[in-house]
């Protein structure tokens, strides 16, 4: 249950980034979470909502992209997704690969919206 700390880090980063766009409000933040990151997306979403509720970020949307574990075959250099701990290369059938991604815990993007110009 470290999702609260992670949600908090995301919100802090959104605030820092949003400060660079005066006259705009942050609308949506996109995260990439790898299968190996040991983070539960549902729990993270719950913490995120609890932390933004009744604040200026209440309407901030959270988009989570789950990234599979990917391996690269050391023999034929094919990249493939690993399912059910099966590390067999689908191209050459060998069991000699290394993990190249799947433990991400990253902020991919932030969407900001400019405020309507106030009527003169």
């Amino acid at each position: 249950m470290h999702e609260m700390g992670i949600a908090n880090s995301v919100i802090e980063a959104v605030r820092t980034e949003a400060a660079r766009y005066p006259g705009s409000s942050p609308r949506k933040v996109g995260l990439r979470i790898g299968e190996l990151a040991a983070v539960d997306p549902e729990s993270l979403r719950f913490c995120f909502e609890a932390l933004t509720k009744e604040t200026d970020l209440e309407s901030l949307e959270l988009e989570i992209e789950i990234r599979p574990r990917r391996h690269r075959c050391r023999d034929c250099h094919t990249d493939f997704n690993v399912k059910d701990y099966d590390f067999t290369c689908p191209q050459c059938g060998k069991l000699n690969s290394e993990c190249i991604s799947g433990d991400e815990l990253e902020m991919a993007y932030l969407e900001v919206e400019e405020h309507e110009p106030s009527p003169a």
Binding site: I6, S9, V10, A13, E17, Y21, S24, R27, V29, G30, L31, L105, E106, M107, A108, Y109, L110, E111, V112, E113, E114
Partner: peptide
């Protein structure tokens, strides 16, 4: 809407 790439680790401070 303006999308800004962040490409930053969530636990970057840690």
């Amino acid at each position: 809407m303006n999308r800004v790439p962040l490409e930053k680790k969530v636990l970057s401070e840690n």
